[in-house]
Lab assay of single mutants.
Amino acid sequence: MSIQHFRVALIPFFAAFCLPVFAHPETLVKVKDAEDQLGARVGYIELDLNSGKILESFRPEERFPMMSTFKVLLCGAVLSRVDAGQEQLGRRIHYSQNDLVEYSPVTEKHLTDGMTVRELCSAAITMSDNTAANLLLTTIGGPKELTAFLHNMGDHVTRLDRWEPELNEAIPNDERDTTMPAAMATTLRKLLTGELLTLASRQQLIDWMEADKVAGPLLRSALPAGWFIADKSGAGERGSRGIIAALGPDGKPSRIVVIYTTGSQATMDERNRQIAEIGASLIKHW
Rank of each mutant, 00 (worst) to 15 (best):
E175Y: 10
E102I: 02
L135R: 08
I125V: 03
T107V: 13
T179Q: 00
E164Y: 07
V31R: 01
L160C: 04
K144Q: 03
E46Y: 15
H94S: 06
P143L: 10
D83P: 05
L150M: 15
E87K: 10
I229A: 13
N134H: 11
V257E: 13
P249E: 06
K213S: 03
G248L: 01
M67N: 13
E195A: 12
L89I: 13
A200P: 06
E210Y: 14
I45F: 14
R255S: 07
V72Y: 01
T179C: 01
D33G: 02
T198E: 10
F70N: 11
E35A: 10
K232P: 00
E62R: 02
P165L: 07
L188D: 01
L192C: 09
S122H: 06
I275A: 08
S68Y: 00
L47A: 11
M153K: 03
G76P: 01
R273F: 11
S96Q: 10
K32V: 15
D83V: 03
K109A: 07
A77Y: 14
E277K: 11
E164W: 00
S122G: 13
C75E: 01
G52M: 10
I243R: 01
G39H: 06
T186R: 10
P165E: 07
A84R: 10
K232Y: 00
S122Q: 07
M115R: 04
A132W: 00
V117N: 13
T147V: 06
E108D: 10
A170I: 02
G239M: 11
R255A: 08
D36F: 04
E46N: 15
V117W: 07
S80W: 15
G114P: 08
A245W: 05
D207M: 10
A225G: 08
A182V: 08
P143G: 09
N173R: 12
Y95M: 11
P25C: 15
E46I: 15
L282P: 01
H110I: 04
D177I: 01
G234T: 01
S96P: 11
D83S: 04
W227I: 02
T27R: 08
G52I: 04
G85E: 09
E35M: 14
L146E: 13
R271M: 14
R241G: 10
L120T: 04
R92C: 13
P224Q: 08
Y103R: 05
D48Q: 02
S51L: 09
L160H: 14
E35H: 14
V72P: 06
Q86H: 10
M180R: 03
K71L: 00
E102K: 05
K284R: 11
I125T: 09
S254Q: 05
D155I: 02
M67G: 11
M268V: 11
G251P: 11
E108I: 12
L135K: 08
I54H: 15
R202D: 12
G234K: 00
K30E: 10
I243A: 15
N173S: 11
S264F: 13
L136V: 10
R273D: 03
P65D: 01
K30T: 14
S221G: 07
T147G: 07
R92F: 10
E175T: 05
V31C: 03
V157S: 10
R176G: 09
A124W: 00
G141N: 02
Q86R: 10
D177R: 00
L192S: 08
E62Q: 02
N272P: 04
M115Y: 04
N50R: 06
D174R: 12
E175C: 09
E56L: 10
E119S: 11
D174L: 14
L247I: 15
H156V: 07
I283A: 02
T187F: 15
T147S: 05
T138K: 15
S104H: 14
A77W: 12
P172H: 05
H285I: 02
L191A: 12
E108F: 15
L47E: 10
T179A: 02
E119F: 07
G52Q: 14
E61N: 05
T116I: 09
I256M: 12
I275L: 12
K190M: 04
Y95G: 08
R273M: 06
E119C: 12
H151V: 04
N98E: 09
G194E: 11
T261Q: 05
I125H: 03
A84H: 12
D174V: 11
A183T: 06
G242Q: 11
D177M: 00
P25S: 06
P65V: 13
D113F: 04
F228C: 12
I256H: 01
E108T: 14
W227Y: 14
A148M: 02
A148Q: 11
D231P: 12
T193E: 02
E166K: 12
A211R: 14
Q203E: 04
D113Q: 03
R238Y: 15
F58W: 12
E108A: 14
I171F: 15
R189Y: 02
E102S: 06
T158A: 07
D36W: 06
G52L: 07
K213G: 05
E277D: 02
T187R: 15
G141L: 14
S51N: 10
I171E: 15
R92H: 12
D33E: 02
T158C: 02
K32M: 15
G226E: 13
K144V: 03
V257N: 14
A183G: 09
V42C: 03
G85V: 06
V72A: 06
G234P: 00
P25I: 12
R238I: 14
F58Q: 08
D129E: 01
S80V: 13
D129V: 00
S281N: 05
H24W: 05
Q204V: 08
V29A: 08
P105E: 02
A84C: 09
V78W: 09
R176V: 14
T187V: 12
W286F: 11
G279R: 01
P217D: 15
T126Y: 09
W286N: 02
R273L: 12
F58C: 13
L55R: 08
K232V: 01
D129A: 00
A276P: 02
G226C: 06
L55W: 14
T186I: 05
T198S: 07
T193L: 05
E166A: 14
L79M: 10
L205Q: 15
N272T: 13
A182Q: 14
T107Y: 05
F64H: 01
I283T: 03
Q88M: 09
R238Q: 08
A235V: 13
A222G: 07
I278F: 03
R271W: 14
L196S: 12
I244L: 12
E175M: 15
P224C: 08
N130H: 01
E237L: 08
W163D: 10
H156T: 13
D212F: 04
P25V: 11
W163N: 09
I244S: 08
M180F: 05
G236K: 01
T193C: 07
L188K: 01
G76C: 10
N50F: 05
T138Q: 10
P143T: 14
P60C: 10
A276D: 07
Q97E: 09
A222Q: 11
R59K: 14
E87R: 10
V72Q: 01
G248Y: 06
W227F: 09
I140V: 10
E164C: 00
G236F: 04
L38N: 13
A246L: 09
A123Y: 02
Y44C: 06
L136G: 08
H156W: 14
R255M: 10
G194V: 07
S122P: 09
L146N: 13
D129R: 00
H94Q: 04
L89S: 11
H94V: 03
P60E: 07
M180A: 02
A148Y: 06
E237N: 13
W163E: 09
V157H: 13
W227E: 01
M268A: 10
E195F: 01
I54N: 06
T112L: 13
D161I: 02
T261D: 15
A84Q: 15
L47Q: 14
L49P: 12
W208L: 13
L89T: 14
F228L: 14
H94F: 03
K144R: 02
N152C: 06
A170P: 04
L49M: 14
T27H: 14
L167R: 01
L136T: 09
T267D: 03
T198V: 03
H151A: 07
H156S: 09
D231I: 14
G239A: 10
E26L: 09
L74V: 14
P60Q: 14
